[in-house]
Computed example of a mutant assay.
Amino acid sequence: MTIARGVRNHNPGNIDYNPRNNWEGQLGKEPNGRFAIFDTAENGIRALGRLLLNYRGKDGMPGVGGPGIDTPREFITRWAPGNENDTEAYIAAIAKRLGVKANDVINIKNPVTLRAVMLGIIVHENGGNPYPDAVLDEGLRRALK
């Protein structure tokens, strides 16, 4: 059985390695690859949550949601650009998980919402969620502190 790259790297969001991002627990990048490697799944999940929280302060799409990135469409378009992903399918999966429409405003600072978006990204990036609730919840807790 092949283990998904994001799971192998303890980076279930498949976050690109950037030396300027000194993430807690980041060990470097995968050999001959572009994705960051973390020491634990909890720290990789933390980085996923922190990035989503940081997106909130960035410029959103004109005519979509409110000011800043605040809709499933805006979060996922930023997370998974269309030149590499079926972004529309990704947006639809996240919106469905949240029970909202793609352009509905969501509050990413709400722990329940953040957890749902993080879980949706983990499932989409890795073909499923290999983590028990305790691991996901610890990553969420670290992202929110």
Rank of each mutant, 00 (worst) to 15 (best):
R8L: 09
R8S: 09
R8Y: 02
H10G: 01
N11G: 05
P12G: 03
P12K: 10
G13F: 07
N14R: 06
I15L: 15
D16F: 13
D16Q: 11
D16M: 08
N18Y: 15
P19M: 09
P19E: 15
P19C: 02
N21Q: 14
N21W: 15
E24L: 08
G25P: 05
Q26P: 00
Q26V: 11
Q26D: 07
Q26M: 14
L27F: 02
G28H: 14
G28Y: 13
K29P: 01
P31G: 11
G33A: 09
R34Y: 15
R34Q: 12
F35T: 01
F35R: 04
A36I: 04
I37H: 03
I37T: 11
I37C: 04
I37K: 07
F38P: 04
D39R: 07
T40V: 03
A41Q: 13
E42G: 05
N43V: 01
N43K: 13
G44N: 11
R46L: 02
R46W: 06
A47S: 13
L48M: 13
L48V: 04
G49K: 13
L52S: 02
L53C: 04
N54Q: 13
Y55N: 04
Y55H: 06
R56A: 12
R56P: 00
G57S: 14
D59M: 04
G60K: 08
G60C: 03
G60Y: 07
M61L: 10
G63K: 12
V64R: 14
V64S: 05
V64C: 04
G65Q: 10
G66R: 13
P67G: 06
P67L: 09
I69W: 08
D70K: 12
T71A: 02
P72D: 00
R73K: 12
E74T: 04
F75Y: 13
T77W: 04
R78F: 07
W79E: 00
W79I: 01
P81T: 02
P81K: 08
P81V: 05
G82I: 04
N83S: 08
E84K: 11
N85T: 07
N85K: 07
T87Q: 02
A89N: 06
Y90E: 00
I91H: 08
A92Q: 11
A93K: 09
I94M: 11
A95W: 15
K96P: 01
K96F: 12
L98P: 12
L98M: 06
L98D: 07
L98K: 09
G99W: 14
V100Q: 09
K101L: 00
A102R: 13
N103L: 01
N103V: 06
N103D: 14
N103K: 15
I106V: 14
I108Q: 02
I108E: 00
K109Y: 00
N110G: 04
N110W: 03
V112F: 00
T113L: 05
T113S: 03
L114T: 11
L114G: 06
L114C: 10
R115F: 01
A116E: 12
A116V: 03
A116Y: 03
M118N: 10
M118C: 10
L119T: 15
G120N: 10
G120T: 09
G120R: 07
G128R: 10
G128D: 03
